[in-house]
């Protein structure tokens, strides 16, 4: 699997170059459509070039019993015991905007990684891979629409 490698890599980077510029703060923002339902659960996560799960960036929605509706994320991240560590918040109401920040190592940018969002709302259809955006410097700031719930998603790198 990729994860131990990533961890090793990250650890190596931290040890070798403890100075600045090894991580950049990314601001992610997703504006929801007025889809006429209860607050949406969203999982924002990274997958690598081969489609393997790398890391969870944010999970909106607090009830674990509904996480199975974030189908892909729930399956892919099942082995990550720390997938929820410090990255959870409330579900996002229709028409609202979710804005969160995440620290991304430089090594992840322009390296074939992809930001994905799974979305679900009560009594409505689950939407795995609602959004898929390559994580690249060039893509930063460009808005992209989701399939069902997300009006527009974009991220800024600092």
């Amino acid at each position: 699997m990729f994860k131990p490698l990533l961890t090793t890599l990250a650890a190596a980077c931290t040890l070798a170059l403890p100075a600045l510029a090894q991580a950049r703060q990314a601001t992610l923002s997703a504006q929801l459509k007025n889809y006429g339902g209860n607050g949406a659960y969203l999982a924002v996560y990274l997958v690598d070039a081969k489609g393997a799960y790398a890391r969870t960036l944010w999970v909106a929605g607090g009830k674990a019993k509904y996480y199975k509706h974030l189908t892909d994320w729930n399956r892919l991240s099942a082995g990550d015991a720390k997938r929820l560590a410090g990255v959870t918040g409330a579900s996002v109401g229709a028409g609202r905007t979710l804005t969160v920040t995440a620290d991304l190592a430089d090594a992840l940018i322009d390296a074939g990684y992809e930001i994905r969002i799974d979305a679900a709302a009560e009594d409505m259809r689950d939407s795995p891979a609602e959004v898929r955006v390559p994580l690249s410097a060039a893509n930063a700031g460009k808005a992209q629409a989701g399939k069902q719930y997300i009006q527009s998603f974009s991220y800024q790198l600092q």
């Binding site: 009830k63 674990a64 019993k65 199975k68 729930n74 399956r75 892919l76 099942a78 082995g79």
Partner: peptide, 17 residues
């Protein structure tokens, strides 16, 4: 109780398929 996760409903993690 199930909404607040006091009673887990799932049969553990989903398999990697």
């Amino acid at each position: 109780a199930t909404t607040f996760g006091l009673v887990p409903l799932d049969a553990g993690a989903e398999p990697d398929i």
